[in-house]
Amino acid sequence: MSEYNKPLPGMDGLTREFYDFCKQEDLHFQRCSGCNTFRHVPREVCAKCNSFDWEWVRSSGVGTVYTWTVVERALHPAFVDDTPMAPVVVEMEEGVRLLANMLDCPPAELEIGMPVKIAYEAVTEEVTLPRFRRA
């Protein structure tokens, strides 16, 4: 796994906390303690009520495809051998949207509204990325 040469998230602050949950194969999103609004990507303050109080809440891990693209020709050298690949934006049950690659769906079968569930791929010893599978 030490040969992994693709871009990795900056593992600090709230981003590290998000990905550390992924490493435990347990998807979490921030939820405001003031107004109960979920948010993603992680942020310091609730944009709805400006509260600094929040907690990590376990996601149901299910959602539906909101939009997608199929990368046919990678413009980053590390992804050249992975094309075609299909990153999808999924509207999760909690209301936030999460971007991740589909693991098990041929690009031609992608559809907006398709139900999906969270999956995980440990790409390095430190980092596990979220992925999606058909529900």
């Binding site: 693709k6 871009p7 990795l8 998230p9 900056g10 981003t15 990507v41 693209t69 990368v71 990678a74 413009l75 980053h76 992804f79 992975d82 690949m85 990153p87 971007l99 991740a100 690659n101 790409v123 980092v127 990325l129």
Partner: peptide, 15 residues
């Protein structure tokens, strides 16, 4: 983008 798009292979504006 660095933390949430690039690791999923979405690395450039057209994507």
């Amino acid at each position: 983008a660095w933390d949430y798009y690039l690791p999923q292979g979405l690395t450039v504006p057209p994507q």
